[in-house]
């Protein structure tokens, strides 16, 4: 009896695993075969396998790179995500340091305001953000893609909680030896907070890499598009070939697979604490 339930459980788990993983397999396999064979293979298991002829694998990729400037889109995505990631670590880290280790006038008010900002749903105010970018004359600029994403109330909060744990005595002794606050921040606080840096870095990289609506709104110039916007653009540029679409989807997913593998242990930390608001 026990063996039967275990058997049922294993069959169920295998079926479920298949349900979760087959779209990804279909996406990658379809990018590695000809357009006709994608549709010929539909009703057999071959739909989840790449072409049996290795020479056909790269055809869709070569054609895609010939028709569109994929390297440029890749460069844009890496540039935007890189700036957001570094900017987010430095700027939110600095603010977190100020809230953790300084006493100054208005600190409590400012901190409550910061916590209040956490409940503003950013996605609803994109239109007003757009009018501000418009008034600043930044529409269709690369700067406009990244600048609203850098400062983040939650990341400031996360850094603050990490910095508070750094003992004051460490800071005091560094001060006695003549270290400025700036060098304390860079030489002591940041190196002691690698998990916080990794969490903020990973979360902001992913958020920026996956960002779609905002760059779609502010960029009119195809040259400046990040990959996510390029995908829907390519998907609506005739002639549309399924294997090429699957190729661009695969290209845009690969960097994230690497990020998730490298940073897996920091991802849960980010969500586990997100919005719980106490520590």
């Amino acid at each position: 009896m026990r063996r039967v339930t275990k058997g049922i459980k294993n069959v169920l788990l295998t079926l479920l695993a298949f349900l979760f993983v087959f779209p990804l397999i279909w996406m990658i396999s379809s990018s590695l075969k000809t357009e006709e064979s994608i549709y010929q293979d539909l009703d057999s298991i071959k739909s989840l396998l790449p072409s049996f002829q290795l020479s056909e694998w790269m055809a869709s990729y070569t054609e895609l790179f010939e028709r569109f400037d994929i390297f440029n889109y890749l460069f844009n995505s890496i540039l935007y995500a890189g700036i957001v990631t570094v900017g987010s670590i430095v700027i939110n880290g600095m603010a977190g340091y100020a809230f953790a280790k300084f006493r100054f006038f208005g600190k409590n008010v400012l901190f409550s305001l910061l916590l209040a900002l956490l409940i503003v749903p950013v996605e609803t105010i994109i239109i007003t953000q757009f009018t501000i970018i418009h008034n600043l004359g930044l529409v269709n600029s690369r700067l406009a893609v990244v600048i609203p994403m850098i400062a983040n109330a939650f990341f400031i909060y996360l850094f603050r909680n990490f910095f508070i744990a750094v003992p004051d005595s460490v800071i005091e002794s560094a001060k006695i030896e003549g270290a400025s606050n700036w060098s304390i921040f860079w030489r002591i606080m940041m190196p002691m907070s690698k998990p916080a840096i990794a969490t903020v870095g990973t979360l902001s990289f992913i958020a920026s890499w996956n960002d779609y609506i905002w760059p779609l709104m502010i960029l009119t110039d195809g040259e400046k598009f990040p990959l996510q916007v390029a995908i829907t653009n390519i998907n609506s540029t005739e002639p549309v070939f399924t294997n090429q679409i699957m190729a661009i989807l695969t290209i845009s997913t690969l960097p994230l697979i690497i990020v998730y593998i490298v940073a897996q242990k920091y991802l849960l930390q980010g969500l586990g604490t997100s919005g719980t608001g106490n520590k």
């Binding site: 700027i91 910061l114 239109i127 400062a151 109330a153 400031i156």
Partner: peptide, 20 residues
């Protein structure tokens, strides 16, 4: 240390929330 974050949050989050 606070200024860069506060300016950015002010312009792109606080101000738009009020303006909306």
């Amino acid at each position: 240390f606070l200024l860069p974050a506060m300016v950015l949050l002010g312009i792109f989050l606080f101000l738009p929330a009020l303006l909306t």
